[in-house]
């Protein structure tokens, strides 16, 4: 087994709720453990409010987690003081969702891409200029853009600039937070292809946060599905998309419309009723129990622990799946 670049254990992140909610705490991330292996793309999939972005922000330490630990290449960065963290930052980079707010409107493309180099002072001015040029080329932009301002670029071009900034220091880990969600289909394809190519040539590991299942399936080696601050299912791409066990994952897969009228109209849809409950007051027991068709009494009382579905690391948190598996084992 290859080494883990990122290990997150029992991560918990709470925010103070808005004043009108009576000073209670929003439990954005309740208990998340995950690993990103060397050279792997791990998809973190979930709907709005599932806490997936918060996990990403904790990993890059834009947020300081309430509890749990984050280890990057073996080093615990959970509460590392910023002076100590700074050199490590060059190895963990992030790409953002919004191609418009993620670039400083008053800086040219070359200044933007050079910023990480300047921050870490690792290169001479000339080396830096060359590196910036090469990186910009690498993300599929022409040299002409170097002196442009972001507002002169299209959304897809801006997102490429964002990628160039993240990759100019050749990081080991890239956190990509919905990097293609704001883009049109034809532009999105280019960015996804580029990500695949860059990941293969540069070999970085990637935590890819998305709500789009088809994007996750296209890109990711392994996928973790989040619901209400917890990972409910994790496994390889084949396991999650081909043999999902958790009722929530199954519902998600059934809910995403397929761009094919024949398939879309003929398939079985078993979509969860209702909407996710508030993260201020998550339900006791399994967080899905109020919406789950399989839920029984145990689900309302006791939070399910991780259940190993396959040797490869397909893990599900669901009492009913566990019972099924136990039954299968007993039968054989």
């Amino acid at each position: 087994m290859t080494a883990a670049v990122l290990e997150v254990e029992n991560l918990r992140m709470e925010f103070r709720a808005p004043r009108n909610a009576g000073g209670r705490r929003v439990q954005a991330v309740r208990d998340v453990s995950l690993e990103v292996q060397e050279g792997e793309i791990l998809g973190l999939v979930g709907e709005t409010g599932s806490g997936k972005t918060t996990v990403g922000k904790c990993v890059v330490r834009l947020l300081r987690p309430t509890a749990g630990s984050i280890r990057f290449m073996g080093e615990d960065i959970t509460a590392m003081p910023s002076s100590q963290l700074r050199p490590l930052r060059s190895r963990i980079q992030m790409v953002f969702q919004d191609p418009y707010s993620s670039l400083d409107p008053r800086m040219t493309v070359s200044q933007i891409v050079a910023e990480p180099l300047r921050a870490h002072g690792t290169h001479s001015r000339r080396e830096a200029a060359g590196l910036v040029r090469r990186t910009v080329e690498r993300v599929g932009l022409s040299q002409q853009v170097l002196d442009r301002y972001p507002n002169e670029l299209s959304g897809g071009q801006r997102q490429r600039v964002g990628l160039a900034r993240a990759l100019v220091l050749e990081p080991r880990l890239l956190i990509a937070d919905e990097p293609v969600s704001a883009l049109d289909v034809s532009v999105r394809a280019g960015i996804l292809n580029l990500l695949v190519d860059l990941q293969r040539t540069m070999g970085f590991s990637c935590l890819f946060i998305t709500h789009d299942l088809s994007v996750a399936e296209f890109l990711c080696d392994r996928v973790a599905v989040m619901y209400l601050g917890e990972i409910v299912e994790v496994g390889t791409r084949d396991e999650v998309f081909g043999a999902a066990r958790h009722p929530y994952t199954r519902s998600l897969l059934g809910a995403a419309p397929l761009a094919d009228p024949v398939e879309q109209r003929s398939r079985q849809r078993a979509i969860l009723p209702g909407e996710p409950p508030s993260a201020i007051d998550p339900p006791p027991g399994c967080s899905l129990n109020p919406r789950c068709p399989l839920a029984d009494r145990r689900c309302t009382e006791e939070a399910p622990g991780p259940t190993q579905v396959s040797e490869g690391g397909h893990v599900v948190r669901c009492h009913r799946v566990q019972e099924q598996l136990d039954l299968e084992v007993a039968r054989s």
Binding site: V185, S186, R188, A189, G190, L192, N193, V196, D212, L213, S214, V215, E217, F218, L219, D221, R237, F241, A256, L258, A259, D260
Partner: peptide, 18 residues
């Protein structure tokens, strides 16, 4: 250009059309 269910970057050099 659409990433669709069943399309995977790992398989046979699958690429999305740009």
């Amino acid at each position: 250009a659409l990433p669709r269910r069943g399309r995977r970057a790992g398989d046979a050099q699958e690429r999305l059309l740009e």
